[in-house]
Every structure is written in structure tokens, then in C-alpha cells.
């Protein structure tokens, strides 16, 4: 058996894949949020940023494919691990409480699944324009795709915004456990740093939540028009 298959076949190997892909996704979410927050700098800034990304199709597609692979790996490993775990306890307890656990820990798979649903919707919404084909026709005076206007249009719909906010809440939950878990899975957590690590995870999760939701709320309240 080659080392790679042995690695992936083992539970620890799959956890490594979860952690490394989780780390990549974590990085993407931060970067993506940083990009999107440019909405507060006005249309010029964000549209230019979007156009800049699209001006390098090679890089863009490499990143997209990489991202897709990461998401698929993260999800495949997650599903495989969850199946093993369900099989490991065929008969449950009278009261299936989980000692010394947090909500985030217990719901990590569910929050992940809903985030997946969100991602699919989100791509249909903004990237493929499947829900609102006219979004892709928005152009700014310079002829660039008017991402600024698209976002404002998108979040003007209260229901869409609510869904985004809920999804961001779940992402926050997912990361509040995921980030510490990632360190543990990679063998980097120690008792001495646990408290700082937990703090870091929660802060990051909260920052991501606040940053992303700020965009939605800003549009909804008319702060950004």
C-alpha cells in the first residue's frame, strides 16, 4: 500500500485532509471577505478589484479549480468520517447528551452542509446569475461588470439577505470549533496554548461574521446605495 493511500485510508489521514482543506477554505473566506469589504470604499474600488481578478483568466481558473478541489475533498472526507462515526455507535443512549461539548462541536456537520447549500446558492446568485440573469448584464460606466450594483440589488431582497445572514451565522459557528479543531488535527495544539487558540478561533469566526454581515446590513439599511 502506498503511503498516500495508507494515509487517506486511515482516520487520522482523513482528518489531516479535513484540516488542511479547512485551513485553505478559512484562508479563502478571509481573503474573499477582505475583497468584498471594498464595497464600503464605493463602486470604483470593488469593480476595479473584480475586473482585476478577471483580467488574469489563467490564474482565476487555476484558483477556481483549486478551490473546487478543496471543497470536494473537505466534503468527501467529512461525509466519509461521519459515516464511520455513525457506524461506530449502532445503538445510542437513552439521552444522547454529549458531555462537555459545545453547540458548535455537535453541529459541525450540519453547519457544514448548510454552508454547502449556501455556497451553491451563492454561486447561482452572483457568479452564474442563474437566479437573476440580469445581474451579469450590470456594467459600470467603464464597461466593467458592476459588482457593486449587483450586490446592492442582491441584498435589497430581504429574504435573500436573511438567508445570507443565517448562513454567515452558521459559518461563524463552524469556524469557532473548526479553527481550534484544525490545530488539534494537525497535532499543533498543546494545553499551554489552548486558551489563546480558542480565543483566536472565536475572534476570527466573529470577525468573519461581522465583516460579511456588515455588507448585507449596510445594503439593507441603505447605508450603502
Amino acid at each position: 500500500m502506498s503511503n498516500v493511500t495508507r494515509f487517506y485510508k486511515s482516520s487520522l489521514g482523513k482528518k489531516y485532509v479535513m484540516a488542511l482543506t479547512g485551513f485553505a477554505l478559512f484562508g479563502f473566506v478571509i481573503a474573499h471577505m477582505a475583497g468584498n469589504l471594498q464595497i464600503f470604499l464605493g463602486p470604483e474600488s470593488i469593480n476595479a478589484y473584480a475586473a482585476f481578478l478577471k483580467s488574469k483568466p489563467g490564474l482565476l481558473w487555476a484558483a477556481r479549480i483549486g478551490l473546487l478541489a478543496v471543497v470536494i475533498l473537505h466534503i468527501t472526507a467529512a461525509i466519509q468520517l461521519v459515516r464511520i462515526n455513525r457506524r461506530a455507535r449502532p445503538v445510542g443512549y437513552n439521552d444522547n447528551k454529549v458531555v462537555a461539548s459545545s453547540l458548535a462541536q455537535r453541529t459541525i456537520f450540519m453547519s457544514g452542509l448548510i454552508i454547502l447549500a449556501f455556497i451553491i446558492y451563492h454561486l447561482l446568485h452572483f457568479t452564474f446569475g442563474a437566479t437573476n440573469p440580469d445581474y451579469l448584464q450590470y456594467h459600470d460606466p467603464l464597461g466593467r461588470h458592476d459588482v457593486y450594483r449587483m450586490m446592492i440589488a442582491g441584498f435589497s431582497n430581504v429574504w435573500v439577505s436573511i438567508f445570507y445572514i443565517i448562513a454567515m451565522g452558521l459559518l461563524c459557528l463552524h469556524l469557532s470549533h473548526g479553527v481550534t479543531s484544525m490545530f488539534q488535527s494537525l497535532g499543533l495544539r498543546r494545553k499551554a496554548i489552548t486558551r489563546s487558540l480558542n480565543l483566536f478561533a472565536r475572534t476570527m469566526a466573529l470577525l468573519i461574521f461581522t465583516g460579511n454581515v456588515a455588507i448585507v446590513v449596510a445594503v439593507l439599511t441603505g447605508l450603502v446605495k
Binding site: 486511515s10 487520522l12 468520517l81 464511520i84 462515526n85 462541536q105 459541525i108 488539534q184
Partner: peptide, 15 residues
């Protein structure tokens, strides 16, 4: 051996 016995894996819960 642990995997072959059918134990679950650790999602770092701490119970």
C-alpha cells in the same frame, strides 16, 4: 488497528 476495530474518529470534542 484502531480503525480496523471500527472505532469512530476524533472530531476534537473533549467529552
Amino acid at each position: 488497528a484502531m480503525d480496523e476495530e471500527g472505532f469512530g474518529n476524533c472530531t476534537n470534542i473533549g467529552s
